[in-house]
Design a protein around this nucleic acid. Structure first.
Length: 164
RNA sequence: UCAGCCGGCCGGGCGGCCGCUCCGGUCCUGUCAGCGGGUUCGCCCGUGCGCGGGACCGGGGAGGAAAGUCCGGGCUCCAUGAAGAGACGGUGCCGGAUAACGUCCGGCGGGGGCGACCCCAGGGACAGUGCCACAGAGAGCAGACCACCGCACCGCGGGUCCUUCGGGAUUCGCUGCGGCCAGGGUGAAAGGGUGCGGUAAGAGCGCACCGCGGACGCGGCAACGCGGACGGCACGGCAAACCCCACCGGGAGCAAAACCGAAUAGGGGCGGCACGCGCGCUCGUCGCGCAGGGCUUCUUCAGGCCCGUCGCCCGGGUUGGUUGCUCGAGGCGGCCGGUAACGGUCGUCCCAGAGGAAUGGCCGCCACGUCAGGGGGAUCCUCGCGGAUGCCCCGGGCCAUACAGAACCCGGCUUACAGGCCGGCUGAUACC
């Protein structure tokens, strides 16, 4: 808190959204989360994007959903700790209409669970289906789950955050 | 006090914690053009334009509709030589306001309301074409079903009277011909209404009043209003059917447009091949001209540009970055002109500029309202019990709230909207 640095970045490119849509998913009544690990993308920690479609309501309501999710994501990422925060992952939160009236604590809880589920490395299940990816996901997702990932990200993540 | 009409305004407030964006300032810092100094020519030190990063301080940060995208403009690019014969779209009482408008203001006409006031796609139906369903006899230079009236008696039937018993007179019904539109009936609409006269019966056929048309006169800038000789009365409705008249209108839109960096297509240059007609020669399958085709953002004419195919080379941009991007037909206040819309002038202020899109998230307190309860008092109905309406006090529950989010900018329109404030006016009722 005293540092106050924004722990998560923001997704602003359409291709990043499309890529995240192919990743793992997580559903609650308030939101749907989609995410992936950025193996090839730019360095840096967790990035979050938001989508609220038109069928969820008018512009004012959609704005409110997105703003609540935004703050909930900041808080959830902070609670999850640096290991989660510095993971090079893209997470897209798709707001549902219930996010408008849900309690804020509930929303934070949803996002925290979503971050945990969605940013896990890809499971090795039927690797033949993936095009071009199975070699990488199989070798890396298995070995570098927790221990190496955390230690690797910590020294590398702290200095670059200053300049980028 | 109650009921209502019109106009203007607000559309949560205070506090705490955390966060976003833009601008300014101070400090720290990265890169580095240039300059000065040093140099062992590798570079080093200092200062630092510019481009960034961070911390802190200060300031700004959604709406009355930001919405729908329905009109009018600014701005940007394209086109821009002329003609209006034409097409298309829009507007439509009159006068004004305005940059402009389909907006606004004032008036006129029509309609509604006791009234304050409200509503109106409100040019032209003797320029033409067309339509008027159903019903009805007849629906546009009308028509004749019933009923009414007259005539014809050739014809048929019946009644009454007379009779010289041959018949005659009269009347009714049927029939035929005609008159006629007042009555019945139909319809949204049936060729003025009422009364008197008139007539075979009727009818503006005649007359009186009303209605209608209306030369002309007066008032008004005008729409229009007032008066009205005269006219026996016709000239129905629909233009939101085509249409006529008057006026207005180039096209596309900030994903406009400009600059910066990496494809494809398109483009340019060179070469090869192909190519209708005419002319020229140095006769090459060369040059020039014409024709033909296409484009020139509705048409016509004028003008301009381009031309098939293959190879090589050059060069080169969509929703990426920067600009456009917010000082503007700007807000507020005073004075002056104007019935008003609005205009003039002076002073003062700077007031969002995001870009997967900031202007927020969470929490606490507060008002009004509403719900049911208790108490008090008022009015009305009722013999009374009781019921209805609204007021004050007490403690309590619920809810912090409608419609809704700038996307280049203005002027309007339309639509949505919990709750509340202010001003003016009208009609009832009570009191003086």
């Amino acid at each position: 808190m005293p540092g106050g640095e924004p722990p998560v970045g923001r997704i602003t490119r359409r291709p990043d959204y499309l890529a995240a849509a192919k990743g793992r998913r997580f559903h609650t009544e308030r939101l749907t989360a989609q995410g992936r690990l950025r193996d090839d993308g730019p360095p840096g920690g967790l990035r979050v994007g938001f989508t609220v479609t038109k069928r969820e309501g008018h512009a004012t309501e959609r704005n409110r959903i997105r703003r609540r999710l935004k703050v909930a994501a900041q808080i959830a990422a902070m609670q999850a700790g640096p290991a989660q925060r510095d993971k090079p992952a893209d997470v897209v939160l798709i707001g549902r209409r219930d996010a408008l009236s849900a309690s804020f604590a509930q929303l934070v809880d949803d996002v925290r669970q979503a971050l945990g589920v969605v940013t896990k490395p890809k499971a090795p299940r039927d690797p033949s289906k993936d095009t071009g990816r199975p070699a990488r996901s199989g070798g890396r997702g298995r070995g570098g789950t927790r221990g190496p990932g955390g230690t690797e990200a910590a020294p590398q993540g702290a200095p670059p955050k200053r300049n980028s």
